[in-house]
Design a protein around this nucleic acid. Structure first.
Length: 582
RNA sequence: UGAGGCGUCGUCUAAGGGUAGGACGUCAGCCUUUGGAGCUGAUUAUCUAGGUUCGAAUCCUAGCGCCUCAGCCA
């Protein structure tokens, strides 16, 4: 045995190396960490400070999880800090409702900001002072043009803009006007404060960008204290600087804004100048990530809410039963780079299975019940059979008793009257293993005389095969799961599937046209084994041979509800599909 | 056709002048009282064309393609 002290472990599911392990031979895992390590090595920074800056105007989704894992993960890895900061500069879009949800999501993901919760709106005072500083330096002016005029005069991608007629107002005049803007002397939209940079810049962002607008809206934090609000480009960089952020990590679409980020910080009296670094946001196949589209799904009632288990929101994933560990594992596996990418949802599903496989107790549940009567088993007899919760390593999770009796339910899919080749489950005259119990042979098929539907199977067991193979050496290929009809609980099972039926929803037509009509199949009369009567909402199980499931909050005593987190890999489905295609 | 960015297996991501590697997916096999898990193996990639070099995914030149930007959104 190796000495645990000499063999420090790194948990691949977190990015926290054991203390002292981050030696010089340890390579950074992405280009951002490369930059950070260089800054640490060169002495540019003695510590690392990042931030996660959501706007409280919607729920967090799996794309945010990538950013959260990056920002908080880097802070954790390098012994630094990561602030939670709300980018709340647009009162007409934001709401406290989202603030609470965001915090719950970040905590659930496994990260913490201690006492470093900030709001950009807390900086409205300093921000205003910095704006006056720019005015006094002749670097900002009040513009009376309408939004339309400003737009027209901004020029186009190939043509330079035209200077505003108010561009050369004196600092004194601008200061007076700006103070009166703040004092509420002018109507909404009548004037803005603009940076005086370069109307001919090839980068449109630099053509005298708007810094402040007049907007009489109630702010969720500052109430009616302000009628002017700063814009993102002015606010974000200064907020970063005021918080002593060293590396301001954001997504690619802000790359074009970086010159403005740097311009503002170069011209106001802030204590430091953080470095903005951009990475590619997460795109996932078979899903949509835009706030607008997610909001539409909720508002149009196409899903049951922000926490609908089909949604890519953190709330939805959590309700579905996804673990924070699996999500973190996924965020690590996808990596961080600058090129646009679309990650296959199969990788996410793989991470789910990898994590759940080691932690979910195995139980039996029959989704679409088919009754089986064992003709050679005495009526009224019940055997309590031992079944391991984790058959690959039974001591790990222990055992429960599973009742066995004359009448069972098996999965309808596990019986075929005319089985194709390679189908080795139950069929007339064929024998299978009942999990944890006996060999079962199908003697007769009972059908509804009117419809021809199979209503029941009459079967027999081999009484000498309880947890052992038959003495005559005959082999059975299939093992199927079952529940005792008299002891099972009725349950609702929600077969959660991909929300969209195409890899890139909305690419060829409106994204709503791409919704998967079978994204949540509800089975109201599934049967689950007796032991599940003690399950609690949020608990996760593997329904053997079927998939991983989590008990939903909609569960009621005597009528549990389960969401499918992810199915098990189904190689029979692959075979059947291949056979059908021949 | 302005500016900024990006092009490596089907997908995501390494290699930063010296064996193009890993993961997911796919395919084949082994194993199995979960057609799960696990184990073996296979498959397939440097956008193009020149150049520098003993040697180029990497450096240079010229192309090509994709993404972002013309909110008083972030």
């Amino acid at each position: 045995m190796s000495d645990p002290k000499s063999a420090p472990k790194t948990d691949p599911r977190t990015d926290a190396p054991a203390a002292g392990e981050a030696g010089p031979e340890q390579k950074p895992r992405d280009f951002i960490r490369e930059v950070i390590e260089e800054d640490l090595r060169s002495g540019k920074h003695a510590r690392v400070a990042t931030r996660f800056p959501p706007e409280p105007n919607g729920y967090l989704h799996i794309g945010h999880a990538k950013s959260i894992c990056l920002n908080f993960g880097i802070a954790r890895q390098y012994g630094g800090t990561c602030n939670l900061r709300y980018d709340d500069t647009n009162p007409s879009k934001e709401d406290v409702e989202y603030v609470d949800a965001i915090e719950a999501d970040v905590r659930w993901l496994g990260f913490d900001w201690d006492d470093r919760k900030y709001y950009a709106s807390n900086y409205f005072g300093p921000l205003y002072q910095f704006a006056e500083e720019l005015i006094q330096k002749g670097l900002a002016y009040v513009d009376d043009q309408s939004a339309e005029e400003i737009r027209v005069n901004r020029g186009t991608l190939t043509q330079p803009g035209k200077p505003s007629p108010h561009r050369d107002r004196t600092p004194a005049e601008n200061l007076d006007l700006f103070r009166r803007m703040r004092a509420g002397e002018f109507p909404d939209g009548s004037r803005v404060l603009r940076a005086k940079i370069d109307m001919a810049s090839p980068n449109i962002v630099m053509r005298d960008p708007t810094l402040y607008r007049i907007r009489r809206a109630h702010h969720h934090r500052t109430g009616d204290a302000w009628c002017i609000y700063p814009m993102y480009d002015f606010t974000h960089c200064i907020s970063d600087a005021l918080e002593g952020i060293t590396h301001s990590i954001c997504t690619l679409e802000f790359e074009i804004n970086r010159p403005l980020y740097d311009w503002v910080l170069d011209h106001v009296s802030v204590p430091c100048h953080p470095r903005q670094i951009e990475f590619a946001r997460l795109n996932l196949t078979y899903t949509v990530m835009s706030k607008r589209k997610l909001l539409q799904l909720v508002q149009d009632g196409l899903v049951r809410g922000w926490d609908d288990p089909r949604m890519p929101t953190l709330a939805g994933l959590r309700r579905r039963g996804v673990t924070a560990e699996a999500l973190r594992l996924f965020c690590e596996r996808i990596g961080v780079a600058k090129r646009d990418s679309q990650v296959e949802v199969e990788l996410f599903e793989h991470c789910l299975r990898e994590d759940l496989n080691t932690r979910a107790r195995r139980v039996m549940a029959v989704l679409r019940p088919l009754k089986v009567v064992i003709e050679n088993y005495p009526e009224g007899q019940v055997e309590e059979l031992d079944a391991a919760y984790f058959p690959d390593d039974p001591p790990k999770m222990g055992y429960r008793k599973v009742p066995f009796s004359r009448e069972l339910y098996i999965e309808r899919d596990d019986f075929m009257e005319e089985p194709p080749k390679k189908f080795f489950r139950l069929a007339p005259g064929r024998e299978v293993r009942l999990r944890w119990a006996y060999l079962l042979k199908c003697e007769r098929v009972v059908k509804d005389p009117a419809t021809g539907e199979i209503v029941e199977l009459r079967c027999s067991i081999d009484p000498h095969t309880l947890n052992q193979n038959p003495a005559d050496g005959r082999k059975v290929k299939g093992t199927i799961h079952w529940v005792s009809a008299a002891h099972a609980l009725e349950a609702e099972v929600r077969l959660v599937d991909r929300l969209f039926k195409v890899e890139r929803p909305g690419e060829e037509r409106d994204f709503l046209q791409d919704l998967n009509p079978a994204s949540m199949e509800v089975l109201p009369a599934a049967r689950v084994e007796r032991s599940l009567s003690e399950a609690a909402a949020g608990e996760r199980f593997q329904f053997e041979r079927v998939g991983f499931f989590a008990m939903d909050a909609d569960s009621r005593p005597g009528k549990p509800v389960f969401n499918r987190i992810v199915s098990l890999k189904d190689s029979w489905a692959r075979i059947a599909k291949a056979e059908a295609g021949k």
